[in-house]
Structure formats: C-alpha cells, structure tokens
Amino acid sequence: MFLEIEHVVIRYPGSQATHPAVDDVSFTLQAGEIGVLIGPSGCGKTSLLRAIAGLERIQGGRVRIAGQALSEVGGGRPLHLPPERRQIGMVFQDYALFPHLTVAQNIAFGIPHLGRAARQQRVAEMLDLVGLGQVAQRLPHQLSGGQQQRIALARALAPQPRLLLLDEPFSNLDVDLRERLAQEVRAILKQASTTALLVTHDQLEAFAVGDLIGVMYQGRLQQWDDAYQLYHRPTTRFVADFIGHGVFTPARIVDSARGPVVRTPLGDLIDLQECPLPSAYPAGECDVLLRADDIVHDDESPVKARIERKAFRGSEFLYTLRLASGEQVLAHVPSHHDHSPGEWIGIRPEVDHVVTFPRGMPA
C-alpha cells in the first residue's frame, strides 16, 4: 500500500464535542489511485486531510506514505514530520495563486531548486499536461475559474509530490462547470500517475474523480469503497441515506417456495443471492432501501401512487410518490411522462440489490 491511514484520531483542545473530530479512521490507497472523502459539514474530512499534510497533529494512530511514517502516536515517542518534509502537494479551495506573478511564474514558484533550463522545461510540461500552454504569460485574473483551478493543479504537480491533496477544489466554480472539470482533473492526475486524495461534499464530484470514496459521519469513516458499492451495497444506514436518492420502507422477510423474499407495500422483492434470511431480524421485520431507480412507472401495475412533488432533471423527472398505505417512495421517470402533482400512476419495484437494515435503526 502507498498511503496508509491507521486508526487516526484527531481532537481539538477545548472542544466540547462528544466525539473526536476524527475518530479511529483507517483506509489505504495504492500508488496511482485517487481517493475521495465525502460527508456533511463537520464530519472530519478536512481535518483528516490537514493531518495527512502535517498541518494538524494527530492524537492517535499513524499516517504512512510508501512505508515511511509521517505521523505516529502510540507505542513509543510521538512522531510528527513537518509539512515541508512530507513531499505532499496541496490544492486549496481558493486556488491561492499569486496575483502579481504570471501563470508560468506561479507554476515555477515551487521548483526553485531546479536550474533555469530545467525549471522552464518543467513549467512547459505542466502547462502541456493541463492543456494551457497558450496562457503562460497571463496573470491569474485574466483566466476563468476553471483555468485558474488547472493552473493551481499544475503548480502543485510541478515539484512531483509523492501525494497530492485537494481540499474542495471545485466549490468556487459554477455548478455546470464542476463535473466537467472534475473529469478533466481525474484525467490529468491519471496521466501524471499521481496518487491523490480529494475532499468534497458533492457526490457528483466524488463519483467523477474517485477510484475509491470514503463516506464520513461524525468523525468516523462509514465505508471506504468504489462508487458502485456505495450506491448499491451500502454497509451502514447513513451511507444508504447519504448517497443517491432513496427512502426506507418498512418490510418483512419471509420464506417462500423460491427462498426468502422481502414483503413490502409495493409487492415482494426477490433476490435469492443477496436477500437476508428471515432470522436476520426479529420476526423478519426490517426496513428496506428503495432507490429512485428501483421504482418503475408502469400503468398496468396494480400498485398505484399519488404524485406529491416532481423535479425536472432534463431526460427524467424525480417523482416523490405516496402510496395509498401511506409510505413515500421516489421514482425516476422519463420526462416524456409528464404527470401533474395529485395524479395517481402505476408503479412496480424492480430491485436488483436488496439492502435491508434493522427496523427504525438510526443512521
């Protein structure tokens, strides 16, 4: 493993919080992988990023890169390598470009140890990598927000850091630009074979950039996995609720001739490979996760639901529906099915991954 985070704990002096800012967090990244930490404000993701950079001290655990301990507490004398000795690059939320320096001078700022010719060559390589060779002599204020972000990335990559950290790098950009730039940044990092860890609160950014994504809540890492697993096989109720669109519906697992089925207000869900046994919960009673893409609009279905709200998403609507029995579900419906709030439509479940949790269990 290249980056190893082992049982890291961070506490802030004088904090009245009932739990540490970062509470026993562990995960790993292979060389060349891109990781993303995502979660609500105050979940500890930025604190953890700063600790990896050496800007915060840990109170427990260990941070290692390529086998070298950078921070370590427990089992001996505490170790804290200062930021300048970690060979870690960082891209900040506000880009932090020097306004009085040209683009080329900004990129060259972190590589003064190189000779003039080598420095110029490295700047040219970085500009080519981010596709902005034509703006080398411009000042930062003459660039768009997306261009400034790519220059900040080029400057961070110029010294060839062992690890690159990115703290909310797209939050200052227009919504329409974020996902496109996130994909561009991923391509740049992959082309440079750079190991990176990014912090964001935006799921689309996380999915666009990350090989592995960690969902944090109240200082703890809930799940460290790829986007597919987080969406379809969440291991905690918080992850299930935080990622994507979905609801929890009361259900009961029962035995049938075909094996265990999950009995819901929309009908029986059958997944012989992933459906839990009835004995997994008292009397088989549980909550089942129903994603918006698990619910199919079907006029022939005997199950009807009333449209409470709808949100236009271009190619589809996100309908919020209420069953006659009172349960609420969500559904993605192609936008040419333009029904009005208050209408009743037919729906049926089409669930490929049955995900259940104890009845009424908090996140």
Rank of each mutant, 00 (worst) to 15 (best):
V91K: 01
F242N: 02
A187L: 12
E308R: 13
L221D: 03
Q137P: 10
A96C: 13
S335L: 10
Q137F: 12
P13W: 01
I307D: 10
V22A: 06
L49I: 00
K190V: 09
F2M: 02
A51Y: 05
R62C: 13
T249A: 14
Y231P: 03
V8Q: 00
L129Y: 01
K190I: 08
Q160V: 13
W344R: 11
T320Y: 13
S340I: 14
I151A: 12
A124F: 09
L129C: 01
E274K: 14
T46W: 04
H141M: 11
R62N: 09
R86E: 04
L198F: 01
E84K: 12
G89D: 00
T18P: 10
G314C: 10
E316D: 14
S144E: 10
V185S: 02
V63C: 05
A17D: 12
S315D: 15
P20D: 05
D225C: 00
D128Q: 14
E343N: 09
P302M: 09
F27V: 00
H332D: 14
V22G: 00
E184T: 13
L48P: 02
F92W: 01
L173C: 08
E300C: 14
H100S: 12
H113C: 10
Q93G: 07
L143N: 04
R150S: 01
G342E: 11
M216N: 00
G67E: 11
P140A: 07
L3R: 03
I107K: 08
T18W: 00
D176G: 03
A187W: 03
C275Y: 10
A108R: 07
F238R: 02
T200H: 00
R263C: 15
Q134S: 14
L323S: 06
D176F: 14
G342N: 10
L81F: 02
S301R: 11
